[in-house]
Amino acid sequence: MKKNVIKLGLVLTLGSFVMTSCDKDDDDTVDTEQQDEQVQLFASNNSDGNVTVYDMISGEASTLTTTSTAAEGIYYDENTDEIIQASRSSNQLNAFANISTFLVDATVTASISSSSDLESPRDIAVNDNYIIVADNADVDGNADTPDGRLFIYTRSNGEISLRNVITTDFALWGIEMVGDDLYAVVDKTNELAVFTDFVATNTATTTVSASKRITIEGIVRTHGLAYDNGTMILTDVGDAASDSDGAFHIISDFDSKFSAVANGETMVVADNQIRVAGASTFLGNPVSAEYDADSEMVFIAEAANGGGRILAFSNADAGGDVAPSVNNSLASASSLYFYSNK
Protein backbone atom coordinates (compact mmCIF):
# COMPACT_ATOMS: atom_id res chain seq x y z
CA MET A 1 0.00 0.00 0.00
CA LYS A 2 1.04 3.61 -0.48
CA LYS A 3 2.07 5.53 2.60
CA ASN A 4 1.28 9.20 3.23
CA VAL A 5 4.77 10.17 4.32
CA ILE A 6 5.33 13.42 2.41
CA LYS A 7 4.13 16.14 4.71
CA LEU A 8 1.51 18.65 3.61
CA GLY A 9 4.06 21.43 3.97
CA LEU A 10 6.01 20.14 0.97
CA VAL A 11 2.91 19.77 -1.17
CA LEU A 12 1.90 23.34 -0.31
CA THR A 13 5.41 24.58 -1.02
CA LEU A 14 5.18 22.94 -4.42
CA GLY A 15 1.68 24.37 -4.74
CA SER A 16 2.03 25.22 -8.41
CA PHE A 17 2.42 21.51 -9.10
CA VAL A 18 -0.62 20.58 -7.05
CA MET A 19 -2.92 23.29 -8.29
CA THR A 20 -2.19 22.84 -11.97
CA SER A 21 -2.44 19.08 -11.77
CA CYS A 22 -6.08 19.28 -10.68
CA ASP A 23 -7.31 22.07 -12.99
CA LYS A 24 -10.45 21.52 -15.05
CA ASP A 25 -11.59 23.08 -18.31
CA ASP A 26 -14.64 25.35 -18.43
CA ASP A 27 -16.87 22.34 -19.07
CA ASP A 28 -15.59 20.67 -15.86
CA THR A 29 -13.63 18.01 -17.72
CA VAL A 30 -10.19 17.13 -16.37
CA ASP A 31 -7.25 18.49 -18.34
CA THR A 32 -5.47 15.23 -19.16
CA GLU A 33 -2.19 16.98 -19.98
CA GLN A 34 -2.08 18.48 -16.49
CA GLN A 35 -3.31 15.21 -14.99
CA ASP A 36 -0.25 13.49 -16.47
CA GLU A 37 2.22 15.79 -14.76
CA GLN A 38 4.83 13.99 -12.68
CA VAL A 39 6.91 15.39 -9.85
CA GLN A 40 8.82 12.65 -8.06
CA LEU A 41 11.77 12.12 -5.76
CA PHE A 42 13.54 8.77 -6.04
CA ALA A 43 15.64 7.55 -3.10
CA SER A 44 18.05 4.66 -2.54
CA ASN A 45 19.35 3.40 0.77
CA ASN A 46 22.00 1.13 2.26
CA SER A 47 19.61 -0.59 4.66
CA ASP A 48 17.63 -2.80 2.27
CA GLY A 49 18.60 -1.53 -1.20
CA ASN A 50 15.02 -0.76 -2.23
CA VAL A 51 13.82 2.32 -4.12
CA THR A 52 11.42 4.72 -2.42
CA VAL A 53 9.38 6.85 -4.83
CA TYR A 54 7.89 10.03 -3.34
CA ASP A 55 5.04 11.47 -5.42
CA MET A 56 5.07 15.23 -4.86
CA ILE A 57 1.62 15.76 -6.37
CA SER A 58 -0.36 13.13 -4.47
CA GLY A 59 1.76 13.43 -1.34
CA GLU A 60 2.25 9.66 -1.23
CA ALA A 61 5.16 7.25 -1.47
CA SER A 62 5.68 3.72 -2.69
CA THR A 63 8.47 1.20 -2.24
CA LEU A 64 9.99 -0.78 -5.10
CA THR A 65 11.62 -3.87 -3.65
CA THR A 66 14.82 -4.91 -5.44
CA THR A 67 17.23 -7.80 -5.04
CA SER A 68 19.92 -5.44 -3.71
CA THR A 69 20.54 -5.21 0.01
CA ALA A 70 22.43 -1.90 -0.31
CA ALA A 71 22.37 0.69 -3.07
CA GLU A 72 23.91 4.10 -3.68
CA GLY A 73 23.37 6.16 -6.78
CA ILE A 74 20.05 6.48 -8.59
CA TYR A 75 18.76 8.05 -11.82
CA TYR A 76 15.38 8.14 -13.57
CA ASP A 77 15.38 8.16 -17.38
CA GLU A 78 12.12 9.66 -18.60
CA ASN A 79 12.79 8.63 -22.22
CA THR A 80 12.89 4.92 -21.37
CA ASP A 81 10.81 5.10 -18.16
CA GLU A 82 13.64 3.36 -16.29
CA ILE A 83 15.30 3.70 -12.95
CA ILE A 84 19.05 3.06 -13.06
CA GLN A 85 20.51 2.15 -9.68
CA ALA A 86 24.00 1.23 -8.51
CA SER A 87 23.93 -1.85 -6.31
CA ARG A 88 26.54 -2.03 -3.56
CA SER A 89 25.61 -5.63 -2.79
CA SER A 90 26.08 -6.95 -6.34
CA ASN A 91 28.56 -4.27 -7.51
CA GLN A 92 26.71 -3.57 -10.74
CA LEU A 93 24.26 -1.22 -12.42
CA ASN A 94 20.63 -2.36 -12.61
CA ALA A 95 17.94 -0.84 -14.82
CA PHE A 96 14.26 -1.28 -13.88
CA ALA A 97 11.76 -0.74 -16.71
CA ASN A 98 8.19 0.62 -16.90
CA ILE A 99 8.51 2.53 -13.63
CA SER A 100 5.43 4.70 -14.24
CA THR A 101 3.22 1.59 -14.18
CA PHE A 102 4.08 0.89 -10.54
CA LEU A 103 1.51 2.98 -8.69
CA VAL A 104 1.74 0.98 -5.46
CA ASP A 105 4.40 -0.98 -3.60
CA ALA A 106 5.84 -3.66 -5.87
CA THR A 107 8.73 -6.05 -6.30
CA VAL A 108 10.79 -5.17 -9.36
CA THR A 109 13.30 -7.20 -11.35
CA ALA A 110 16.11 -5.63 -13.33
CA SER A 111 15.42 -5.63 -17.05
CA ILE A 112 19.11 -4.98 -17.76
CA SER A 113 22.20 -5.33 -15.59
CA SER A 114 25.83 -4.53 -16.17
CA SER A 115 28.67 -6.87 -15.35
CA SER A 116 29.86 -6.79 -11.72
CA ASP A 117 32.80 -4.44 -12.20
CA LEU A 118 32.36 -2.12 -9.22
CA GLU A 119 33.84 -2.37 -5.73
CA SER A 120 32.29 0.51 -3.77
CA PRO A 121 29.86 2.57 -5.88
CA ARG A 122 28.79 5.88 -4.35
CA ASP A 123 27.04 7.95 -7.01
CA ILE A 124 26.03 7.91 -10.66
CA ALA A 125 25.68 10.59 -13.31
CA VAL A 126 24.28 10.31 -16.82
CA ASN A 127 25.44 12.04 -20.00
CA ASP A 128 23.34 11.05 -23.03
CA ASN A 129 23.86 7.27 -23.39
CA TYR A 130 26.75 7.17 -20.93
CA ILE A 131 26.40 6.24 -17.26
CA ILE A 132 29.27 7.28 -14.99
CA VAL A 133 29.76 5.64 -11.60
CA ALA A 134 31.96 7.09 -8.84
CA ASP A 135 33.66 4.30 -6.90
CA ASN A 136 35.55 5.10 -3.70
CA ALA A 137 37.36 1.79 -3.18
CA ASP A 138 41.10 2.20 -2.51
CA VAL A 139 42.65 1.46 -5.91
CA ASP A 140 46.29 0.83 -4.92
CA GLY A 141 45.69 -0.53 -1.42
CA ASN A 142 47.62 2.31 0.18
CA ALA A 143 45.47 4.56 2.37
CA ASP A 144 48.16 7.24 2.30
CA THR A 145 47.73 7.78 -1.46
CA PRO A 146 44.14 8.91 -2.11
CA ASP A 147 42.56 7.63 -5.29
CA GLY A 148 39.27 6.50 -6.77
CA ARG A 149 37.72 5.36 -10.03
CA LEU A 150 35.12 6.58 -12.48
CA PHE A 151 33.52 3.72 -14.40
CA ILE A 152 32.07 4.79 -17.76
CA TYR A 153 29.29 2.58 -19.13
CA THR A 154 27.40 2.80 -22.41
CA ARG A 155 23.65 2.18 -22.61
CA SER A 156 22.78 0.88 -26.09
CA ASN A 157 21.21 -2.06 -27.93
CA GLY A 158 19.49 -3.25 -24.76
CA GLU A 159 22.74 -3.58 -22.83
CA ILE A 160 24.79 -1.68 -20.24
CA SER A 161 28.44 -2.23 -21.14
CA LEU A 162 31.62 -1.00 -19.49
CA ARG A 163 33.52 1.30 -21.90
CA ASN A 164 36.53 2.32 -19.82
CA VAL A 165 37.72 3.19 -16.30
CA ILE A 166 39.34 6.44 -15.19
CA THR A 167 41.49 6.38 -12.05
CA THR A 168 41.59 9.67 -10.17
CA ASP A 169 44.27 11.05 -7.85
CA PHE A 170 41.74 11.75 -5.12
CA ALA A 171 39.03 9.78 -3.33
CA LEU A 172 35.54 10.12 -4.81
CA TRP A 173 31.97 10.38 -3.59
CA GLY A 174 29.32 12.54 -5.25
CA ILE A 175 29.43 13.40 -8.97
CA GLU A 176 27.26 15.63 -11.16
CA MET A 177 27.16 16.28 -14.91
CA VAL A 178 26.74 19.96 -15.84
CA GLY A 179 26.52 19.98 -19.61
CA ASP A 180 29.45 17.86 -20.75
CA ASP A 181 31.55 18.62 -17.66
CA LEU A 182 31.75 16.25 -14.70
CA TYR A 183 31.95 17.80 -11.23
CA ALA A 184 33.23 15.55 -8.45
CA VAL A 185 33.62 16.07 -4.72
CA VAL A 186 37.11 15.36 -3.43
CA ASP A 187 36.24 13.04 -0.57
CA LYS A 188 37.94 13.46 2.81
CA THR A 189 38.57 17.13 1.96
CA ASN A 190 36.62 20.36 1.45
CA GLU A 191 37.42 20.46 -2.27
CA LEU A 192 35.49 20.30 -5.53
CA ALA A 193 36.94 19.18 -8.86
CA VAL A 194 35.80 19.32 -12.48
CA PHE A 195 36.72 17.25 -15.53
CA THR A 196 35.84 19.25 -18.63
CA ASP A 197 34.21 17.48 -21.59
CA PHE A 198 34.55 14.31 -19.54
CA VAL A 199 33.04 11.53 -21.64
CA ALA A 200 34.38 12.60 -25.03
CA THR A 201 37.89 13.38 -23.78
CA ASN A 202 38.51 10.37 -21.55
CA THR A 203 37.98 7.33 -23.77
CA ALA A 204 40.83 5.09 -22.58
CA THR A 205 41.38 3.25 -19.32
CA THR A 206 44.01 5.40 -17.64
CA THR A 207 44.76 7.79 -14.76
CA VAL A 208 43.53 11.36 -15.19
CA SER A 209 43.91 14.52 -13.10
CA ALA A 210 41.01 16.93 -12.80
CA SER A 211 40.90 19.94 -15.13
CA LYS A 212 40.47 22.15 -12.09
CA ARG A 213 40.26 21.66 -8.33
CA ILE A 214 39.33 24.28 -5.74
CA THR A 215 38.70 24.52 -2.00
CA ILE A 216 35.21 25.39 -0.71
CA GLU A 217 35.63 27.54 2.39
CA GLY A 218 33.41 26.62 5.33
CA ILE A 219 33.04 22.95 4.44
CA VAL A 220 34.79 20.24 6.47
CA ARG A 221 34.18 17.25 4.18
CA THR A 222 32.23 17.36 0.94
CA HIS A 223 30.02 14.44 -0.02
CA GLY A 224 26.92 15.19 -2.09
CA LEU A 225 26.27 17.74 -4.81
CA ALA A 226 23.39 18.82 -7.02
CA TYR A 227 23.04 21.40 -9.79
CA ASP A 228 20.02 23.00 -11.42
CA ASN A 229 19.67 26.17 -13.46
CA GLY A 230 22.88 27.78 -12.25
CA THR A 231 22.68 26.84 -8.57
CA MET A 232 24.98 24.25 -6.98
CA ILE A 233 24.28 22.49 -3.68
CA LEU A 234 27.22 20.96 -1.79
CA THR A 235 26.77 18.89 1.36
CA ASP A 236 29.16 18.80 4.31
CA VAL A 237 29.22 15.65 6.47
CA GLY A 238 31.65 17.21 8.94
CA ASP A 239 32.95 14.53 11.28
CA ALA A 240 31.66 11.26 9.83
CA ALA A 241 31.41 9.85 13.37
CA SER A 242 28.95 12.56 14.40
CA ASP A 243 25.25 12.51 13.53
CA SER A 244 24.62 16.19 14.28
CA ASP A 245 27.30 18.36 12.65
CA GLY A 246 26.24 18.21 8.99
CA ALA A 247 25.44 21.11 6.69
CA PHE A 248 24.89 22.11 3.09
CA HIS A 249 25.96 25.12 1.06
CA ILE A 250 23.94 26.92 -1.61
CA ILE A 251 26.00 28.54 -4.36
CA SER A 252 23.88 30.60 -6.77
CA ASP A 253 25.37 31.82 -10.04
CA PHE A 254 27.72 28.89 -9.59
CA ASP A 255 29.25 28.81 -13.07
CA SER A 256 30.68 32.32 -12.90
CA LYS A 257 31.75 31.96 -9.26
CA PHE A 258 33.57 28.69 -9.95
CA SER A 259 35.24 30.17 -13.04
CA ALA A 260 36.43 33.15 -10.99
CA VAL A 261 38.45 30.92 -8.63
CA ALA A 262 41.84 29.86 -9.97
CA ASN A 263 42.91 26.23 -9.90
CA GLY A 264 44.10 25.34 -6.40
CA GLU A 265 42.57 28.44 -4.82
CA THR A 266 39.57 28.93 -2.47
CA MET A 267 35.97 29.98 -3.00
CA VAL A 268 35.30 32.09 0.09
CA VAL A 269 31.98 31.99 1.91
CA ALA A 270 31.36 35.75 1.91
CA ASP A 271 29.26 36.88 -1.07
CA ASN A 272 29.56 33.42 -2.64
CA GLN A 273 27.84 30.83 -0.46
CA ILE A 274 24.94 30.33 1.94
CA ARG A 275 25.52 27.74 4.69
CA VAL A 276 22.66 25.83 6.34
CA ALA A 277 23.63 24.07 9.58
CA GLY A 278 22.48 23.63 13.18
CA ALA A 279 20.45 21.46 15.51
CA SER A 280 17.13 22.35 13.86
CA THR A 281 18.27 21.06 10.46
CA PHE A 282 18.61 17.38 11.52
CA LEU A 283 21.78 17.26 9.40
CA GLY A 284 24.48 14.87 10.55
CA ASN A 285 25.82 13.01 7.52
CA PRO A 286 24.05 14.50 4.47
CA VAL A 287 25.45 12.17 1.82
CA SER A 288 23.39 13.20 -1.19
CA ALA A 289 21.44 16.21 -2.41
CA GLU A 290 19.00 17.23 -5.12
CA TYR A 291 17.79 20.70 -6.05
CA ASP A 292 14.72 21.97 -7.88
CA ALA A 293 15.29 25.53 -9.09
CA ASP A 294 11.61 26.12 -9.91
CA SER A 295 10.50 25.64 -6.30
CA GLU A 296 13.92 26.49 -4.79
CA MET A 297 13.63 23.25 -2.83
CA VAL A 298 16.72 21.48 -1.49
CA PHE A 299 16.38 17.72 -0.91
CA ILE A 300 18.84 15.86 1.31
CA ALA A 301 19.53 12.17 1.92
CA GLU A 302 20.65 12.15 5.56
CA ALA A 303 22.40 8.87 6.39
CA ALA A 304 22.97 9.11 10.14
CA ASN A 305 20.68 11.44 12.09
CA GLY A 306 17.77 9.44 13.50
CA GLY A 307 19.01 6.40 11.60
CA GLY A 308 18.40 8.04 8.24
CA ARG A 309 16.07 10.69 6.86
CA ILE A 310 14.81 12.31 3.68
CA LEU A 311 14.77 16.05 4.31
CA ALA A 312 13.42 18.90 2.19
CA PHE A 313 14.15 22.59 2.77
CA SER A 314 11.89 25.20 1.21
CA ASN A 315 13.28 28.13 3.17
CA ALA A 316 17.04 27.66 3.05
CA ASP A 317 18.01 30.85 1.20
CA ALA A 318 18.49 32.77 4.43
CA GLY A 319 20.94 30.15 5.69
CA GLY A 320 21.63 29.29 9.30
CA ASP A 321 19.82 26.87 11.60
CA VAL A 322 16.77 26.22 9.41
CA ALA A 323 14.22 23.51 10.19
CA PRO A 324 13.30 21.31 7.21
CA SER A 325 9.84 21.59 5.65
CA VAL A 326 9.77 17.81 5.34
CA ASN A 327 11.40 15.24 7.60
CA ASN A 328 10.73 11.61 6.71
CA SER A 329 12.47 8.52 8.06
CA LEU A 330 14.43 6.34 5.63
CA ALA A 331 17.00 4.04 7.19
CA SER A 332 20.52 4.61 5.84
CA ALA A 333 19.33 6.97 3.10
CA SER A 334 22.09 7.14 0.50
CA SER A 335 21.10 8.86 -2.73
CA LEU A 336 18.40 10.92 -4.45
CA TYR A 337 17.13 11.87 -7.89
CA PHE A 338 14.49 14.55 -8.48
CA TYR A 339 12.30 14.39 -11.58
CA SER A 340 9.62 16.73 -12.91
CA ASN A 341 8.01 16.80 -16.34
CA LYS A 342 6.30 20.10 -15.56
Rank of each mutant, 00 (worst) to 15 (best):
T20H: 09
T222L: 12
S314I: 02
D271P: 04
Q40D: 14
E37D: 01
T281H: 04
V178L: 09
N327K: 10
A204C: 01
Q34L: 11
D169P: 05
P324G: 00
L192D: 00
D228I: 10
D27S: 09
G307F: 08
T189N: 06
E72W: 04
G9S: 10
L330T: 06
S68F: 14
L162E: 06
F282E: 13
I132M: 05
G224C: 05
L41M: 12
A312R: 12
A71M: 04
D253W: 01
F151W: 11
Q38M: 13
I99C: 12
V18I: 07
G158R: 10
K188E: 12
N79L: 14
S242G: 07
A303L: 15
R275Q: 15
T222I: 09
D317Y: 02
S329G: 02
V208D: 02
I310P: 07
T145D: 13
V5G: 02
D271L: 11
V199G: 00
Y227M: 01
G49M: 09
T231E: 06
F198K: 07
D55K: 03
I175C: 03
V186R: 11
L12T: 05
I250K: 11
T222Q: 11
I83R: 09
D255L: 13
K3C: 05
D23K: 15
L225R: 08
S16M: 08
R275M: 14
T154I: 11
T231N: 10
D236Q: 11
D292S: 08
L64W: 04
F313R: 05
N91A: 13
S295V: 08
